Every structure is written in structure tokens, then in C-alpha cells.
Simulated assay, not measured.
Amino acid sequence: MQYSVGVEYALHCLVYLIDAPSTESIGIKDLAEFQGLSETFLSKIFSKLSKAGIVNSVPGVKGGYRLAKSPEDISFWDVVEAVEGAKPIFQCKNIKDNGYLYKEGCCSAPSSCTINLVMLSGEEKMRDYLRSKTLSWLNEELNHVLSKQIREGTREYFSKGNQ
């Protein structure tokens, strides 16, 4: 199992949006340049975030994106689901139905595969954990793990619109 790098870029960029005043937005060009990636790639990610109601798109020359909800109301799982989709990681193919005992009718299988149930339960535990971590939590955590200079430099970069 592996999430795409889009989840990581989304989380980083969403943290940058936290400090933007509610009347302003941050342009996709600035976000992409700051992260060192293409605008096209980041636009695709932000299109998904917008569709999921995590960000709002602001049209116009000074347009861009801003958070659609409070950072306390946006979980890591919200971002993962927006970028990756809602389907389960484990896709049961009912391979037991191809087994020897099932072909011969000697064994009456339970309606739910035990392997599938365990995998889905594990995924639910992971989802619960990711739901417990919010953008607000991440923002506070970054204050502890990054230097004050880096945090202030990042905020300054986006507050000036990188002009």
C-alpha cells in the first residue's frame, strides 16, 4: 500500500493556507513554485481538494485557493480521501471460490471472507487514526519540529504573494 505523493503535497500546501487571511487566497503558481513542482500537477490536486470541499477556488487575477473549512475540521483522512478516492485499499477478489474444496462442494464457506474482514478492520483503524490528526494539529506540530526562521520565512513568502 502506498499513497501518491499528491497526498504529501496537498498536506504541505494546505498548511500554507492556514495563515492566509479569510479574505485572501494563495495562487497555485506560488504554491507550486514554493514546492518546486509543476502548476499543472498541483492544479490537479487542488481540483480534487476543491471538489471535496476542503478548499475554495477564488477566480481572477489575484485568485487562488483558500481553506473552505477551519483547520480543526480538516483531517489527514479528508485529504487522503480527496486525493486518492474512497475505495478500500484491500480489494477482495474472492479467490477462495477457486480453491479445491469449494469446487468440489465439500466445504460450505461463510458468507464473509475472514481475510477480507481483517484487512477492512485494519484499514478502519488506520482511517480512525488519520481522522484524529487535523491541519490544526499539523500546524502546531510544525512549530515544534521546524525552526522559527523557517516558519516565519514560509509565512512571509506567502503573505507577500511572492511578488
Rank of each mutant, 00 (worst) to 15 (best):
K103D: 00
P110D: 01
H144T: 09
V61Y: 11
G85P: 07
R151L: 02
L37S: 07
R151T: 01
L146T: 01
L42A: 08
S112G: 03
N162C: 07
K69C: 12
Y9P: 06
K93R: 08
L135A: 03
V55Y: 04
A10C: 02
D73L: 12
Q163A: 11
A68G: 10
R131K: 09
W77I: 15
T154D: 06
F34G: 12
D128A: 03
K148L: 11
V83A: 00
E39Q: 14
S50I: 05
D97Q: 04
N56C: 13
E141C: 00
S70G: 15
R127P: 05
S75I: 00
V145I: 13
G122E: 13
S136G: 08
F158T: 13
K44P: 13
K69N: 12
S43T: 10
E84S: 09
N56Y: 13
L11H: 04
E84H: 07
K29I: 13
Y16S: 04
K133W: 01
D30H: 11
W137M: 09
I26A: 08
V15D: 03
E152T: 10
L142G: 02
T114H: 07
K51E: 08
Y65G: 02
Q91N: 11
I74N: 03
N94M: 12
D73M: 11
S108W: 01
Q35R: 15
Y9C: 01
Y129T: 12
G85N: 00
E81R: 15
W137Y: 14
A82F: 02
A82E: 05
F34Q: 13
K29Q: 05
G85Q: 00
L120N: 07
E123N: 08
E33G: 09
K125C: 04
S112D: 05
A82D: 05
T23S: 11
S47E: 15
L117G: 02
F46I: 00
V118Y: 06
I54T: 02
I28G: 04
K87V: 04
E84R: 11
Y100H: 14
F158W: 08
S70M: 09
